[in-house]
Design a protein around this nucleic acid. Sequence first.
DNA 1: CCCATCCTCAACCAAGTGGTTGACAACCGC
DNA 2: GCGGTTGTCAACCACTTGGTTGAGGATGGG
Lengths: 121, 121
Amino acid sequence: MSADPLSRVFSALADPTRRDMVARLSVADATVNELAEPYDVTVQAVSKHLKVLEDACLVSRTREAQRRPVHLEAEVFDLMTKWIERYRRQAEERYRRLDDLLRSMPDDVGPTPPSTTGAPS
Amino acid sequence: MSADPLSRVFSALADPTRRDMVARLSVADATVNELAEPYDVTVQAVSKHLKVLEDACLVSRTREAQRRPVHLEAEVFDLMTKWIERYRRQAEERYRRLDDLLRSMPDDVGPTPPSTTGAPS
DNA sequence: CCCATCCTCAACCAAGTGGTTGACAACCGC
DNA sequence: GCGGTTGTCAACCACTTGGTTGAGGATGGG
């Protein structure tokens, strides 16, 4: 419960049922009963899933008569995409540099210590 | 263990230690001991974390002498970004349509008609 | 006011997770 | 071949999780 926001978001989306709820909420707001209808579990279980999504700030609920419509808050997605993009770029950058390195040494200078700045010729 | 790929990836990244490992692996490959060094847990625990990342196809290990260098496989990130982008776009689209709708009805057709149109003065 | 509806809270249970320790397999250097 | 280094496997433990059932709070209609 006391995890960092990013962990909460990833964790919340690590469940197929919750991902499906998010997918459906991206089309339209819905009540708990509406959300629960397609799944083969009790309403209480769905309510628990919603609590997880709410703790991750992925959805919000507002009182409206005796209904509690659930609304998707898509901004939190940014948290993930930023994290993912950051390290994906870094990994790709590394690939690029590795390519350059390999291109710059046509002979087998092998993996052993580069030590001496091996300017070949 | 028998979850779908997307669940495995999200679940793998729902842990701060594992995210930190991914971050460090995005800079350079590393061995298990190197990876374990900064953390306050045993090497076995780190090995378990790596197994989770490996099951999610986020890293790969190859034998190299008695070392087992761990390598980041960044392609799986696409799986996540595709999912995320899909529903984020859908949610934004919905917002846009709602805006259009609201713009198309300039008067207060709003919720819960304020009964007597309470023009104060 | 009473009731039906919608939803959440509490207690419980089986299974999964993250951590530990201890044993052991694989590999190189001497 | 022996010993040191590197890493995994197995058993165990505390805690979390996703599910259940049962009770109960809030709210609007008759």
